[in-house]
Design a protein around this nucleic acid. Structure first.
Ligand SMILES: [Zn+2]
Ligand SMILES: [Zn+2]
Length: 545
DNA sequence: GTATGCGGGAGAT
DNA sequence: ATCTCCCGCATAC
């Protein structure tokens, strides 16, 4: 038995015994345990534990109480190649933990999402730890038995967090030049943007023998992309207390959780459920007001720009993660295999070919290249239409525009004054993008560019057996990339915007919309973008014009 | 940015 | 009264 445990005491005792023998620090204390640590025991002084424990208020300044946050697991409970399960460490910080939820499972072969397995080890409540300091000892007492696996150790979580900073890694990445520096073309040939621009302007728009796509964008379009994230909340008339009416809080388009999706595409069935307040036709019949509607996906304009900035960062991160896997498929690209957490594989491995419809055997493997889009709805307050103005509307394409950022999963529609219905909206102030430092949108959209196999690429597509055997729908007769130029040779990463995708790229594969680069895509982007990239295929590689 | 601690407060029992 | 959980705030790294 533990030496410090030889006296009976309770953490709440008025007089705690003075002990002379101490316990070794127990990182994984489980069960109803008590330990006494030396006052100079560093782990005890930090109240640390292998379990993810968060402070909880017991209104007792003398006794620190912590409760267990459980463990972050894969929603599909997948098994890693080495037989282990995914069991990440929940962030202690609420905000950070919220962001973890819904992230793709780190298992490269899994389409699952991370979710918190809460601890109910103490009569249905989380296991609790109590810490009490006295002059001669640090007393520890735990109540409950964890009913979940151990999370990864703190050090591992910290290392993983560092490793997952994709943007940080981007600086040293092979693709950073090609993607973030417009003067470097994707085939590695340094070429000024201006040169390419003028070339593109004069390039003949021929199709035969050439393959062209539009991966770069003009500023106006980028601004539109940003602005479309300024949107009104959709309205929903529902009873949030009813189980059947509960909304999925994950908000990614392809969430497979059982809750009702709140992903509100234009034109799909969700529209009827969550009508836009700008669209009177969406209001239920015989309803002249929005009374009874509950706004969802609200955006608080007071910090919308900050949210946009965060969302853009996240988005860029995710895009980069995809591309990084393509260009740097080897495990040691960032020395991850030398780290303890490499048991999870390359941190971003799983993300490239997630199917948007995990339950559909026929789903196109290309229709999910952005399955890693992180989508978390934050509880937020109302946006104010008064902070919006028509200047943020971009022409007649707005009905096609759709924000896929995690807390702005709403389309960019007309801006209406909602203060009539939501008086809270009367007070907010006008915001101005220019006053904020955002990542340049062109960078983001450059990251979104269709990505083409490079000659140095040995494994292609990476981590996917399915794509290689995949064929374009023979009905897609206009597609330039077919036949011997199978979709193996290109990846489109930007088409996670399913609403836009459905409207613009109605190609069907096995009954599912596809993300193929095709004539429709070119046609659409041809109007929206002022730059295009042409290439032709010769001697097993793409030559860029 | 996240981890950690504090303390007010609401709601449950 | 006691307990849990939520939240904002403040500090440390
Ligand atoms: Zn998984
Ligand atoms: Zn636990």
């Amino acid at each position: 038995m533990c030496p410090g445990n030889n006296q009976e005491w309770d953490i709440n005792d008025n007089n705690i015994p003075r002990v002379t023998t101490y316990d070794q620090f127990q990182e994984w204390s489980d069960g109803h345990t008590r330990f006494v640590y030396r006052p100079d025991c560093e782990e005890a002084r930090r109240h640390s534990s292998g379990w993810a424990m968060r402070n909880t208020n017991n209104h007792n300044v003398h006794i620190l109480k912590k409760s267990c946050l459980g463990v972050l697991v894969c929603s599909l409970r997948c098994t890693l190649d080495n037989g282990n399960k995914v069991h990440l460490r929940p962030a202690i910080c609420d905000k950070a933990r919220k962001k973890q939820q819904g992230k793709p499972c780190p298992n490269r072969k899994c389409n699952g999402r991370l979710e918190v397995l809460p601890c109910r080890g103490h009569c249905g409540y989380p296991v609790t730890h109590f810490w009490r300091h006295t002059e001669f000892a640090i007393f520890f007492q735990a109540k409950g038995n964890h009913d979940h696996p151990r999370p990864e150790p703190k050090a591992s979580a910290e290392a993983r967090r560092m490793g997952q900073s994709a943007l940080r890694m981007l600086k040293s990445s092979k693709i950073s030049g090609a993607l973030l520096n417009p003067s470097v073309s994707l085939n590695g040939n340094a070429e000024s943007r201006k040169t390419r621009e003028s070339k593109n302007k004069t390039a003949s728009n021929h199709n035969s023998g050439h393959y062209q796509w539009y991966g770069e964008t003009n500023i106006a379009y980028c601004e539109a992309q940003l602005s479309k994230a300024i949107a009104e909340p959709r309205l929903a008339k529902f009873d949030a207390n009813l189980e059947s009416e509960k909304l999925c809080s994950h908000s990614f388009a392809d969430c497979t959780c059982s809750l009702r999706s709140n992903y509100n595409y234009i034109g799909n069935s969700m529209d009827a459920a969550f009508p836009s307040i700008s669209d009177n036709s969406n209001k239920h019949a015989n309803e002249s007001t929005f009374d009874g509607y509950t706004p969802i996906l609200q955006v608080d304009v007071s910090d919308l720009t900050q949210k946009m900035s965060n969302a853009i960062d996240t988005h860029a991160d995710n895009v980069f993660q995809n591309l990084d896997k393509i260009v740097n498929p080897s495990m040691d690209a960032y020395n991850f295999d030398s780290r303890e957490h490499s048991k999870y594989g390359m941190p971003f491995d799983s993300y490239q070919y997630q199917k948007p419809m995990a339950n559909s055997a026929n789903a196109s493997p290309l229709n999910g290249t952005h399955g890693n889009q992180v989508a978390v709805n934050w509880e937020s307050s109302f946006y104010s239409s008064e902070t919006m103005n028509q200047n943020f509307c971009y022409g007649n394409l707005m009905h096609l525009q759709h924000a896929n950022f995690y807390d702005q999963q709403i389309y960019f529609g007309d801006i209406y004054d909602t203060s009539e219905h939501f008086p809270q909206n009367s007070n907010s102030e006008m915001m101005n993008f220019d006053e904020y430092e955002l990542m340049h949108p062109n960078d983001i959209l450059a990251l979104d560019a269709p990505f083409v196999k490079q000659e140095t690429q040995s494994a292609w597509p990476p981590f996917s057996e399915e794509v290689r055997s995949y064929e374009l729908d023979p009905m897609a007769t206009q597609c330039d990339l077919k036949g011997k130029d199978s979709p193996d040779n290109y990846i489109v990463t930007s088409l996670d915007d399913r609403q836009q995708h459905n409207e613009c790229f109605p190609l069907q594969w096995n009954g599912q919309s596809s993300n193929g680069v095709n004539a429709l895509q070119r046609e659409f982007f041809g109007d929206s973008l002022n730059m295009k990239t042409e290439a032709y295929y010769e001697n097993d590689k793409y030559i860029f014009l």
